[in-house]
Structure formats: C-alpha cells, structure tokens
C-alpha cells in the first residue's frame, strides 16, 4: 500500500444511538501509518466516531470501510486481526495476572485446537516488553497503579497484533506524568512498529504534540483535518472549542501550543483594552 493511502475511513456516516442522532453525513479518512488524533469539545461525537470506526456501532447510513470493504460485512474475528481497540473502560477479572490479561489479546488468533502456540507466547512476551510491563508479568492487575494498568491494557491490544490500533481517551484518569508516559509509548509504537494509531484525546496540546494527523470535530462535523501545524490555529480553537487563545510554538518540540487567554476583569465579554 502506498503511503498516504487510507485503510480505514467512513463515508457519509450517520451515527445515532436509538433516536438521538450524533452525526450526519460525516466523512473521515485515517491516513495509513499515521498517528491520527481526534479532538473536539465534549459531546462532539468523537468517541461515537471511534466506536463506529471500530465496528461497535453500526452507522444508520453510510459505511465504514476497512481495506475497501464495509466493516460490517467482515467477520468479527477477521476485523479483530486487523483493527484493535483500547476501550475507555475495561474490566480486569478478579485476581487475573498481568501475563494472563495480556494473553487474552491473542483470542482472535486462537482456536479450539490452537489454544496457545509458541507464536502466542512470543507475541505476549514482546508486547509486555514493548510496554515495559514484563517485570510485572506475575503481578495481579488489581494491585497495579493507574499508569501501569493502562500499559497492561495497551500490551493486551498489542498482543492482538493489528496493524491498526484505536485508543479511546487513553490518558483519562491518569496524572500528567503518566499521561506523557502513555503518549510517548504510543508515539514509539507508531514510529518503531509502523502501526497506524487513532486516538481520541482531550488535551489539545498533547494532540498537537503527538499527532501526525489531526481531526477536529464539533457538533458531529469535521471542522478541520490535517497536520497539527496547519489545523491548530487560534481561529480554529475559537471555532471548535469557543475558547479565546493564543497559539505559540512549543519550546520543546516546535509544535503548536495553545495558551488560553487570560481571564478578563469585569464582564467577560468586554473587549480587551488596546
């Protein structure tokens, strides 16, 4: 596949829960081998879009295409060998060990007579090493810290060995150091393993720093998509989030850095004195 092409995308999607429509006529493409980040205010439909892209929500109109085919025409197991998902919240069964949980990522590759191949064993070990949880292998998942636990879930998704990996708000509930740790890990997986990553993130500055492709959404529409440097502008942040701000260069990376405008005194709507 040529670079720049897209293996995953949606055309003319209408996304709805029961009667509540979240998005209409939504078209997105995830560039192959990109680290795509979807941003937008609460309830803009970004998590809903991720659910649709991962086959968990069937669009009421339009189609999600994976390698050119409607994702709902493909068998669940086949999709699970191409596209992985780290959900916003998962449940670790009582007392399960790290190695056992990561091993469950091998499910789509296993069968009745192929329950635990050498390949399974090798991939699980590699996944734990790549996420730095190999020395926790025998620990119970319940005993781990939030950051460690998130790395274990990522290891499980890696063990699934999918070229595409979707992450739904992977940094929520983590403190700032662990947020950066998880995002560094994602960037490494993207660069070193050549995986296509799609993540929903809340923090604009994280998105601008780590993404190679940004999709900005508001009210179920894509407002802008492209490289962070061209997408993250003061005008766009005002349009998408309704937040007055300045955008400067991140002194560490040179990527756009959003600095919210200072609180105005008196009425917030008063124009700034010259």
């Amino acid at each position: 596949m040529r670079p720049g092409e897209s293996r995953l995308g949606g055309t003319a999607l209408t996304l709805a829960y029961d009667q509540r429509t979240i998005a209409e006529n939504l078209t997105v493409a995830v560039p192959d081998r990109s680290f795509t980040v979807i941003i937008g205010p609460n309830a803009c439909g970004k998590s809903t879009l991720l659910r649709a892209l991962s086959r968990m929500l069937r669009p009421s109109a339009g189609a999600v295409l994976l390698d050119g085919r409607d994702i709902h025409d493909l068998p669940a197991r086949k999709v699970a060998r191409t596209l992985g998902l780290l959900p916003q919240s998962s449940i670790a069964p009582d007392g399960i060990s790290v190695a056992e949980l990561v091993a469950r990522g091998r499910y789509p590759h296993q069968g009745l007579l192929r329950q635990w191949s050498r390949e399974d064993e090798r991939v699980v070990e590699e996944s734990m090493a790549a996420t730095g949880v190999d020395d926790l292998a025998d620990r119970a998942v319940d005993e781990l810290s939030g950051g460690q636990r998130q790395r274990v879930w990522i290891a499980m998704a890696l063990a699934q060995q999918t070229p595409l990996l979707l992450l739904d708000e992977p940094t929520t509930y983590l403190d700032i150091a662990h947020q950066i740790e998880i995002l560094d890990l994602c960037a490494r997986l993207h660069e070193e393993q050549g995986r296509t990553l799609v993540a929903v993130l809340h923090d604009l500055n994280h998105a601008a720093r780590y993404a190679t492709h940004l999709i900005a959404m508001r009210d179920g529409r894509v407002v802008a998509a492209g490289e962070p440097a061209s997408v993250v502008t003061a005008d766009l942040v005002a349009e998408v989030f309704g937040l007055p701000c300045r955008v400067i260069d991140d002194p560490e990376t040179g990527t756009p850095l959003v600095v919210p405008a200072a609180r105005r005194r008196a009425t917030t709507l008063a124009p700034e004195p010259a």
């Binding site: 197991r77 086949k78 998902l85 499910y107 998704a157 699934q160």
Partner: peptide
C-alpha cells in the same frame, strides 16, 4: 467493548 474489539 473489549470483548467486541477482540472479535467476540
């Protein structure tokens, strides 16, 4: 969600 992502 996790089960469905694993192809269940």
């Amino acid at each position: 969600d996790a089960a469905s992502a694993l192809g269940v």
